[in-house]
Amino acid sequence: MLVIRRDLVEELVAHARADHPREACGQLLGPEESDRPERYVPMTNADDPDAQGSDYRFDSREQFAVYKEATERDEETVVVFHSHTRVPRRPLTDSGLPEAYPSVKDIEYMGLQPGVHFVIVAITGPDSDYDLRSFLLDDAGEVVEDDVQVVENYMFSHTGAGDVPDRS
């Protein structure tokens, strides 16, 4: 289950729209072992923009700079985000949007980050509707879809973090 603040969802969707038709990517950081995303860091998509199709890859130097800062702040990556845009190889679903489901390549890389949620935002254009889904891999390497709960703030949601009171 992924509990995420609405303003963070809006940041992800805005980034996906701004970069369309290229895939947008980024990460949500939060306190270590909290499973609670607190801030969004958009990442440069370093995948070759001239390559066929649209993939994403974090810029490795930028990734290191973000990692270093996060470590100093006792933060870690809670969510890796990328968008699925409208490209010929990706069929549209009945909703008219690309499928917000991990590709074979997505799953290969998901396996490198156990416990991290992978959020996909599917859009067809800068002004289109969107579909947001979240996944992680279980211990057997199978894709499991998260139940996504969008909240206004974490104080009144069941985040599971010990230092945040749950609503009684």
Binding site: M43, Y56, F58, S60, F64, Y109, L112
Partner: peptide, 11 residues
């Protein structure tokens, strides 16, 4: 020496 997982996907 810092080792990080590469982050990529899409295809």
């Amino acid at each position: 020496v810092t080792i990080l997982p590469a982050v990529a996907g899409g295809r």
